[in-house]
């Protein structure tokens, strides 16, 4: 496909690769919102160019390095990438889990990330297990002026909540959506009492129904090896992938009549409403036949 005309999607900052991968001299030829692009480092300066159909290098767009990733935009962002002050705290380990491709809409991917009800069925024995399947009541809100979706006071019983966890625990969660394509969760740290671990996904929408998903963790865990941490997160994410690639239609329906929801879907419903109010169309299911409907 060609570059989308959806201004709402174009005017966001998007993560398109890890600093570590690109700084080692590997240019990343990739795609963003239907536009082929090249991401590279000029010394310490990240740069992004359009990659023209004829193979030539085209217009340059803004790029910046943040949270171990290269961020860029094809439009004129009205809002900076999300602020995560925890990145400045001592003792935290940043785990960059690498990009993984998923044939699904970015919006389905973000919505799945906000969902606790699937833990016992998709992450069986790790993040949930029958018969403890109930989603306890939680709070949802749009935070202003940040314009972010939050779900707080979430909790779920988990047989193995993290790479470092030996036993089951009730994990507390907070979820935060800072752009249609960027979401972070704060989760009970199994090692340090009262502290939160961060897990986030920066979804790079390549096309309406294909994304690279950049996953990171920012954890207080001095014992697990880097491989342990990366494997744990990749295992969780790949379990989700087999679900995400089998949702039909691929585009996220924003019309409340299109898919049934219950109270436990509160964060999903608020996310859909927030997207609808923004006027986002890229990656949504549109009844007029212009979407990627199956």
């Amino acid at each position: 496909m060609t570059r989308t005309t959806d201004k709402v999607a174009l005017n966001e900052w998007q993560a398109v690769g890890t600093v570590e991968e690109i700084i080692s001299g590997k240019r990343r030829n990739t795609r963003l919102l239907g536009q082929d692009i090249i991401v590279e480092m000029d010394g310490e300066i990240p740069r992004m160019f359009e990659n023209n159909a004829n193979g030539g290098i085209g217009t340059e767009h803004p790029a910046q390095a943040l949270y171990g990733h290269i961020w860029t935009t094809l439009g004129t962002p009205v809002k900076a990438p999300l602020d995560m002050p925890e990145f400045k705290e001592d003792g935290r380990r940043l785990v960059v889990c690498g990009a993984l491709t998923v044939r699904a809409s970015a919006l389905r991917i973000v919505e799945n990330f906000l969902d606790m009800a699937h833990f016992p069925y998709v992450h069986t024995g790790i993040l949930g297990e029958e018969p403890i399947t109930a989603v306890n009541d939680y709070k949802i809100e749009i935070r202003e002026p940040e314009d972010e979706v939050w779900a707080t006071e979430c909790s779920f019983f988990q047989p193995q909540a993290a790479a470092s966890a030996d036993d089951g625990q009730v994990s507390q969660y907070m979820y935060r959506v800072s752009s249609p394509f960027v979401t972070v969760l704060y989760k009970t740290c199994p090692v340090v009492e009262g502290a939160w671990d961060l897990v986030g996904i920066f979804v790079q929408p390549k096309d309406e129904a294909e994304c690279d998903v950049h996953t990171f963790m920012l954890v207080l865990d001095e014992t697990s090896t880097m491989s342990d941490l990366v494997h744990f997160q990749q295992e969780i994410f790949l379990q989700d992938r087999s679900i995400l690639e089998n949702q039909i239609p691929p585009g996220l329906p924003l019309d409340p009549m299109d898919e049934i929801a219950i109270k436990a879907d509160g964060s999903s419903m608020l996310y859909r409403r927030w997207l609808r109010n923004k006027g986002l169309t890229f990656g949504t299911h549109r009844g007029d036949g212009s979407s990627q409907a199956a």
Partner: peptide, 12 residues
Amino acid sequence: NRCIHRGMRLQF
């Protein structure tokens, strides 16, 4: 072949 909740293919 589609769940009414989140569109998942029921064959899986």
